[in-house]
Design a protein around this nucleic acid. Structure first.
Lengths: 214, 214, 214, 214
DNA sequence: GGGTAATCGAGACGGTACGTCTTGTCTTAGG
DNA sequence: CCTAAGACAAGACGTACCGTCTCGATTACCC
């Protein structure tokens, strides 16, 4: 059922902006599922068809609205101190997660992505991808400067650091915050082992005689 | 309009089991939002009212179905070697996450929890809570045995280790697996820093001259 | 599927009376269709099964309730003057029709009978039959006494006289009343024709040649 | 909660016709109460909302369907002979009442009207009103031509004549037919009294010595 | 006068229909 | 051609009753 795509040149920019704003606000206030196309059209003062014409699904609207809202923050400072830079950026992320605007819409979108492959792909590509890459790039430089040990898998490191933030964000036991970021960086960089074990022996050799447990 | 709660003694166990099984299967096949009470009732061979009588919402049905499906796996082995035990348990979790049954229903449920506070609370209490506590308990024993440095915040450690698994599970860049677990444990226990830095100095003192950034 | 009939000896008379009273009141207040078995049971303080045990349908309950309510008025006075007796009885019927109790329940029942053959048969047999027979019997005596012309079809006469009352009762243009009864009896006994035509010539010969139609 | 009425210009005539036909057929086959909006929509190939949008109730749909089905037969012949014209029209009505289509739907509708004031009003206004008026007009002309005695209450006469048809139609002892019409007209025009009494004396004076009853 | 069988109030059960809401498509009228 | 507006077919929502069923707890009859 090949559909003729509409001509982008004729697009009404005002309608587009109204729709994105309405979608964002509704999703913030009611959550993703209760944000209906009907309601978006009504609040934007727009016909439903105008939405269906330009976006393939509700998720696509929300995703685009998210992209408009998140701003330009893909950048990652480089002060020379990788932990300081990470702390700064991760703290910013934790603030973003706990913000009432972006934070609540984004979690809604991630929620929707659990059963919507397009949404999941969109989030990874548009939101997470660039920021993940920026973080990874910063870590790579740190690794070159011997602030991170050679051979460490940088992708897994990013997942480790940010995963802890996402965990609190999505599982909602308690919100992420600057204190969590501080502790995470301390633990991750220094390692979990006591100092006497922190001697560079390869992982797995640190326990000499496993104690029998009750 | 206080409603009189139904008498649990008169409950039809067969109907209950059918409903949970139907809910689980539908949620696995279609995802949470497309799983309708109507369809659950139909597939379970049950009247809709029987669902509404015993559960306050669709989410509550799915949550109970999840609880039935997950089994008793709150336990946490104690071989004396905390990293081995963590590796074993985290690998099991990663397998659970990638299973087609539990894994897909659970992610749907977490997705729904993003805009449903009751669902979020239920997941934390019923699914995550006991397992988080078991992990934390194991870590506490390890800390007593000096396998984990004194003073480390055990809650944050659990969040750090499992957060990375949840990240891949929910963000869907790539699925969690045993290799990820291995690397995470290596990184976390040994620390990110090169060996010469792993000297036990408190975090934040390792960089002598951080460059001020704009 | 032969069903064993319950033993009437063990029947709880109190329950029976409560059910009939509740059914009558509900039907009076809400009409037949909105009178549910559920509501009858509730108001009567009775289990639903007690109703289903003793009556085959809601209609049967209402019909029995009607029969209890209508009293013994099958009798028909005989003063020697048939028009006076008819006037008396028909006026009583018109009062019954406009009563808020019996009148509204009875019309509900007739309404239900339009699509319920059992109800229709029950009404004819229990309510109308005896009264129709009494009226017909009174007319037969009048015919013997030459107050009604010989050869007149008494069944049709009863239908004619009471049909006019039922018409107003069921079609609800205006309610039946004593004045209507008076006019009906005047018209019916004296005939519609002007006096000069009232000469006993057989019907059909009275009009000689007056057709100037528009 | 004032609701904005829909715009009649945008109405889908095909849907309207399908709905009326489906409603009529279902009501004919199952009766009024078992005719559900759900079934009408299904049979008409229409969404339920389309019914709820344009009609306030099931009764209104059926009533409109009846009006479509009854055709234009408000007219009343004028051959100059009022009894012949009445016989013709009343016989046509009795045929209509016993028809399997209109007859069964109309009685269902009258049944529903017993507990539905809107339905009752609709029937009187749309169905009965125009035909009653036509009959009354014909009688008025007959009265001018001295075929009906002066002073006779024409409304009551129409109720008398048609009431007998409605009586058999709604009470269902036996169906109305041409023979009933013939006898009614004979009785009504000639009067019930024997010829020797038919002398034009006012009603009430014909019995010289009424016996007082208890 | 104790055993037992049916009735009772209560209400859970598998269903059907209610009237409302939203979906995504289609149609209409105006700029 | 795009727009706002909204009718349309479809179908899920949560509620109300349907008629059947199963519970204990009184009865009330029989032996």
């Amino acid at each position: 059922v090949a559909r003729k795509p509409p001509d982008p040149a004729r697009r009404n920019e005002h309608a587009r902006a109204s729709i994105l704003a309405a979608a964002f606000d509704l999703c913030r206030d009611r959550g993703y599922e209760k944000t209906t196309i009907e309601a978006i059209a009504q609040r934007a003062g727009v016909g439903k068809q105008t939405i269906y014409r330009w976006w393939p699904s509700k998720g696509a609207v929300i995703l685009e609205a998210l992209n408009e809202a998140i701003g330009v923050a893909t950048d990652f400072a480089d002060s020379g101190d990788v932990t300081a830079d990470l702390r700064e950026q991760m703290t910013a992320v934790s603030r973003l997660f706990t913000s009432t605007d972006f934070g609540s819409v984004y979690s809604s979108a991630i929620g929707a992505a659990q059963d919507d492959a397009d949404m999941a792909e969109g989030i990874v590509q548009d939101i997470i991808g660039p920021r993940f890459a920026a973080a990874r790039k910063r870590l790579a430089r740190a690794q070159e400067q011997n602030q991170i040990r050679a051979g460490a898998d940088l992708d897994v490191i990013v997942e480790l650091l940010y995963g802890a933030l996402y965990y609190r964000y999505l599982i909602k036991t308690r919100p992420p915050d600057a204190e969590q970021v501080r502790i995470i960086l301390d633990l991750a960089f220094a390692g979990l082992r006591p100092a006497e074990y922190a001697d560079g022996r390869p992982y797995g050799s640190e326990v000499t005689a496993p104690k029998p447990t009750a």
